[in-house]
Amino acid sequence: MTPIATPTDAELPKLKLDWAPLLVLPALALAALPLIGSAPTWVTLTIAGLAMGMMIFIMASGLTLVFGLMDVLNFGHGAFVTVGAFTATLVLLPMQGWMQADSVLMNLTALSLAVALAMGVTGLLGWAFERVIIMPVYGQHLKQILITMGGMIVAEQMIHVVWGPDQIPLPLPASFRGAIIFGDAAIEKYRLIAVAVGLIVFVAMFLVLNRTKVGLLIRAGVENGEMVEALGYRIRRLFVGVFIAGSALAGLGGVLWGLYKEMLTAAMGSEIMVLVFIVIIIGGLGSVGGCFIGALLVALVANYAGFLVPKIALASNILLMVAILLWRPQGLYPVAKR
């Protein structure tokens, strides 16, 4: 038996924060500036990218946590996005008067009600989805993928059954419309709001994960669920909670996304899922921080490419993913696992 451990009191390396992925973001934005050529356009595109990135983050964060915690990849996550957006119309369309009134307070009240309902419904749906669809197939990746994909199709079709086959327009509330002129650049108000909401969600999530016992348990569970159980905690309950929260966040993301597009389609969830998957692969499966940076990267690239070479906008994200995986095969922030 050869001792391999270091002596007890050797000085430890200082805790290293992995900065490199954080630098990619400004580097990308700066590299795009000369390609785009015009500073105001660049500002508009960058803000648009950040807004989109925040929304994608909100949708993707729950998915990546659920995967990290329980090794469950829910291909039906996009259904919660769609259901969230459509549920919001149950409030927003009857309250059109409040939405279009020239009063921030009335707009916000209507919107808050819609968001609360959407998150409540998607959270509840998440709970049911977990019980009925996912629980029987724990630990069986193949069946998980197939079943959750099937669940997604059914949910999407049910949207058609309930809301009919047509697209539903969802106008922005009056006070969120229009743009702020900032020098030569026009910045849409709603994009700023989306950035703000995204930041709030990120900070809240960060605080919960780092400052509360539940958060510590979630982080511990991502790394070693068995040990969390051996310490006397029911990881299953933790998991259901995270699943519900993740679904509700997807619902919130759906409302934000629907208002951003001002048009709802039953396929909106599955369309955005393509970007969400790219984001969580880039970020490192299970990593919330990686998911955040990944979402911003993907959205910025999508916006810049959409302006520079519109025909290959989505393909550009595939290229981004390939580049990142060549650099870090497990994603930006790989999660230590068992």
């Binding site: 291909f75 990746h141 692969i281 025909k311 989505l314 393909a315 993913m321 095969p329 497990q330």
Partner: peptide
């Protein structure tokens, strides 16, 4: 790319690549 890392990667990456390809085909 994907089979090397994790089997579940493959499902996600193929989904992303296939969607991009379908959009590319209708764009060009």
């Amino acid at each position: 790319f994907s089979l090397r890392v994790k089997a579940i990667f493959y499902a996600m990456i193929t989904l992303a690549v296939a969607s991009a390809f379908a959009i590319l085909a209708s764009q060009l």
